[in-house]
Amino acid sequence: PDEFRDPLMDTLMTDPVRLPSGTIMDRSIILRHLLNSPTDPFNRQTLTESMLEPVPELKEQIQAWMREKQN
């Protein structure tokens, strides 16, 4: 489902985090971005790792969907 895909890389998220802007991304992708630029890739506001907020409900939904697909 589209809501499980990272908006920057269009890959399935495994550890979704919410940026201060409200955008949800995969943690590994935003951390890689932050190594090059300490900004939100969508609005260029300053962004640090400590500002990332886990989204455990979405992570659980993704994991359940993945388990379902394996069966």
Score class of each variant (00 low, 15 high):
Pro7Gly: 02
Asp40Ser: 00
Gln45Glu: 15
Arg18Met: 09
Arg32Tyr: 03
Pro1Trp: 01
Ile30Gly: 01
Asp40Val: 06
Phe42Val: 06
Ser28Cys: 14
Pro1Tyr: 09
Val55Ser: 05
Arg18Asn: 15
Gly22Ile: 02
Met9Thr: 09
Glu53Thr: 12
Pro1Arg: 06
Pro7Asn: 04
Glu57Tyr: 11
Phe42Ala: 08
Ser37Trp: 02
Leu34Met: 11
Phe42Leu: 11
Phe4Tyr: 14
Arg44Asp: 10
Phe42Glu: 08
Arg18Gln: 13
Met25Pro: 04
Thr39Ile: 05
Leu19Pro: 01
Gln63Leu: 12
Pro20Leu: 02
Ile30Ala: 09
Phe4Arg: 09
Thr46Ile: 10
Gln61Arg: 14
Thr39Met: 08
Arg44Glu: 14
Leu34Gly: 03
Pro56Val: 08
Leu12Phe: 10
Arg44Cys: 10
Asp2Lys: 13
Ser21Pro: 02
Asn71Lys: 12
Arg32Lys: 15
Pro16Ile: 12
Pro16Thr: 06
Ser21Arg: 01
Ala64Trp: 07
Val55Leu: 11
Gln70Tyr: 03
Ala64Gln: 13
Ile62Pro: 08
Ile30Lys: 00
Phe4Gln: 05
Pro38Gln: 14
Ser21Leu: 03
Asp26His: 03
Ser21Gln: 06
Glu60Leu: 12
Asp40Pro: 03
Ser50Glu: 15
Met66Gly: 12
Pro1Leu: 01
Met13Gln: 02
Pro16Gln: 07
Pro20His: 06
Asn36Tyr: 13
Met13Arg: 01
Glu3Leu: 07
Phe4Glu: 09
Pro38Glu: 05
Lys69Glu: 11
Asp6Tyr: 08
Glu53Ala: 11
Ile30Met: 02
Thr14Asn: 11
Pro1Asn: 14
Arg32Cys: 15
His33Lys: 03
Arg5Met: 12
Leu35Arg: 15
Met9Gly: 11
Pro1Ser: 05
Ser50Gly: 14
Met9Val: 08
Ala64Tyr: 08
Asp15Asn: 09
Thr39Arg: 10
Met13Ala: 11
Glu53Arg: 10
Leu12Arg: 04
Pro56Met: 09
Gln61Asn: 15
Ile62Phe: 04
Glu57Phe: 09
Ile62Thr: 07
Leu31Asn: 15
Ile24Asp: 02
Pro1His: 09
Leu58Gln: 10
Arg67Val: 13
Glu49Met: 03
Pro56Ser: 10
Pro16Gly: 02
Asp15Ser: 06
Gln45His: 11
Pro16Cys: 03
Arg18Thr: 01
Thr11Met: 06
Trp65Met: 08
Ser28Ala: 15
Pro38Lys: 15
Asn36Leu: 10
Ile62Val: 09
His33Trp: 13
Asp40His: 04
Phe42Met: 11
Met66Tyr: 05
Asn71Ala: 13
Gly22Asn: 08
Val55Trp: 11
Thr23Phe: 13
Ile62Ala: 05
Leu58Trp: 08
Arg67Thr: 13
Leu12His: 04
Thr46Pro: 14
Leu52Lys: 05
Leu19Thr: 03
Thr46Tyr: 11
Gln61Gly: 09
Gln45Thr: 15
